[in-house]
Design a protein around this nucleic acid. Sequence first.
RNA 1: GCGCCUGUAGCUCAGGGGAUAGAGCAACGGAUUCCUAAUCCGUGUGCCGCAGGUUCGAUUCCUGCCAGGCGCACCA
Length: 569
Amino acid sequence: MQKLKEEIGRLLAPLVQLEPEEVISLLEVPPETAYGDIAFPCYVLARQRKQPPPLIAGELSKELSGIGGHLWKEASPRGPYLNFHIDPSAYGSDIIQRIRDEGLTYGNTDLGGGANVTIDYSSPNIAKPFGVGHIRSTVIGHSLYLIYKALGYNSIGINHLGDWGTQFGKLIVAFEHWGEEDELLDDPVDYLYKLYVRFHKEAEVDPALEDQARAWFKRLEEGEAEAVDYWNRFRSLSLDNYALIYDLLGIEFQHFHGESHYNDMLEEVIQLAREKGIAVESEGALIVDLEPHGLPPVMLQKKDGATLYITRDLAAAIYRKETFNFARSLYVVGAEQALHFQQLFKVLELLGFSWASQCIHVPFGLIRFKEGRMSTRAGNIVLLDEVLRRSIEMARTIIEEKNPDLNNKEEAARAVGLGAVRFGDLSNDRIKNIEFDWDKVLDFSGETAAYIQYSHARICSILRKVEDTDRKFDPQAVSLLIMDEEAALVKTLALLPDKIIDAAEAYRPSILARYLIDVARDFNRFYHNCPVLASEGLLREGRLLLIDATRQVIYNGLALLGIEAPEEM
RNA sequence: GCGCCUGUAGCUCAGGGGAUAGAGCAACGGAUUCCUAAUCCGUGUGCCGCAGGUUCGAUUCCUGCCAGGCGCACCA
């Protein structure tokens, strides 16, 4: 698409007295393919030429009639627009050849130039079970990690484990009171979760428990052996459990620096805040007054001397800058923490760090029940484990029904089941809340990952049936692809690089997810109207090249969402 | 009370100054001697939350209001 725009920009610029770049930025896609494939709106020229836009469009069309381009064949006026019509043969040839040449790297660009981008994602709280709520940060963050990598950035995935804080005090108190050793060993995370829920229930009647919890956390911060032992056990038991889920989902991180990692740096942060004169005592605690900046105050240190998570986040931000010298630092964390990040970035700025502006909160909405929000404390959450298991099970059932002869059913079921859950989270604008609904999670029809994967599998199926697998690009064969369905598919395939860039700039994998739905839809229309194997000669060859390119686009695109594209399902 | 986010078809959601506002689901009807029907084609639906403003032009930008969600010092 970019190449086509450049060509139009070059030709049109001298005729309209604009720079080629300006022309390119004005170009838009018409609402109907019938109008044309790319349009130049003439409103901007109305003042300059003192003519109505439709007249200008007509004149430009005439001026261009003798010229023509490589990738387009005609520029027709329609109302105030000058519509360019792609030459399907030339354009298709250009795009398909490019996809063939670039293969697995088609869609990638080198915008990043190797610059570091840190991405904080997943970051579960130790000792709490992995609920469906946690999947959002995990899946969105990991996709952004992959997308930035595809743009030539050096992505650095950081799992900022919530492995410190008063919650550990709570767990220790709960375990001291009600803990059973064998139950803990039996199913650690589940048991710790039960203790956590029980703590909050009992604390409602007996508020003294909260004080005990704070005291235990204080002892932990002071490095008291008994507290540290508890912490170590709870932490490693939880990590073992998370490892299973990350493994299943294919999620990776370069760093597992949890909150506890920054303990040694907290004193320094507090010292710096004092030196800069932004930290003040208030009611026995140490706070930063952000009122002049229109924000509520933040607390760096409690009156008992223990720190809070923003203190650790400050230390972590500084550590990341010093260690990775990031060009951008992303925090893929729920929208409910928006204020926290505003405060965090503001304090960094007040501490004199100009790079505070490179820190970006990438927020997302809550996963809720119809009846209200999920709460770990109240104990009403849906476990991610269960969601993934049931989704894979459902996929297995459908495969059994539709494709009973399939060889590696288990592999396909896993790809489809996990893909469904992932896609459900990635396909809508991340800022919106999601209502958790089993029926929707387990539905594999319509705009779903299965739809895209299915398109991929069918292409693979066709390609398997061809005797000569050693295909070469043939411009003549591709030039025969002039049916509407073929031209539409080619045009969509050309968009992958732009969509990856758009997704990265908006921090929205949903842009890419939606695009892949378009690819699959265009492919399915083609599939139903244009026989591949039953065609003959060069046309058959051209269609094989087209679907192979489609296969590549789907494969590459799904990969950036962290979704597998099985060859059979 | 203050702040942030959201409001588009019956439901779930795309779109995001410009040409007749689009998909999926659900409903109904159709397509399989042929490459996997997890598919495709057809039918119907919209005060784009309400009221102002900016503009040649607003569903899109600005302001106010309404509704829902989420936050607002010793949790993370």
